[in-house]
Amino acid sequence: MSDLALPAAAAPRAEARPGRLNPYLVGAGIGVLSWVVFVVVATPIGITTAASQIAGGVASLAVGPEAVNANSYWARHPFRLDYGTLFLVGTFLGALASSLASRSFRFEAVPAVWRERFGGSVPLRFAVAFLGGAIAMFGARLANGCTSGNGISQGLQLALVGWVFLAAMFVSGVATAWLLFRKS
């Protein structure tokens, strides 16, 4: 448990471990990345707009492109390889490269904290992950952004929407985690 939360004082030792960086340094890095994207491409960091465009692409495989184009939401966010979609691909590749470079890439079906509470069943973990992903994305679209697009990119501009989103997600996230992990 004690090495889960690394204090700044222990940072040099922590950084020597593969694939770890002081969280304040990582936060500052994301902050500096925000400066760069605001100046260079005028497009703040965000994930879910691109993800819903990809969903339109997936849906068109099932119901055909005409049905997707007729949908009023996808008419506003058509599937294409635009900036946001390529940023999302880059995010995946960056984490892949980082985990390979630090030799911490490994296949994980059931994480330790989940296993401790709910056991090692892969179907159960997969089912809840699928459901949770679906609820999170529906909520992110309703809120017009996720942790990145609303929480960080709107939050750093002190936009009301960003701070209301952060408050709402942490309140319900903490409450849900409490319900899931409380000792019955």
Partner: peptide, 16 residues
């Protein structure tokens, strides 16, 4: 949306 997002994030264990 934020309230739903928190529920989903706790179940999934990730944000998008």
């Amino acid at each position: 949306g934020g309230l739903l997002f928190g529920v989903g994030m706790a179940l999934y264990g990730y944000c998008p």
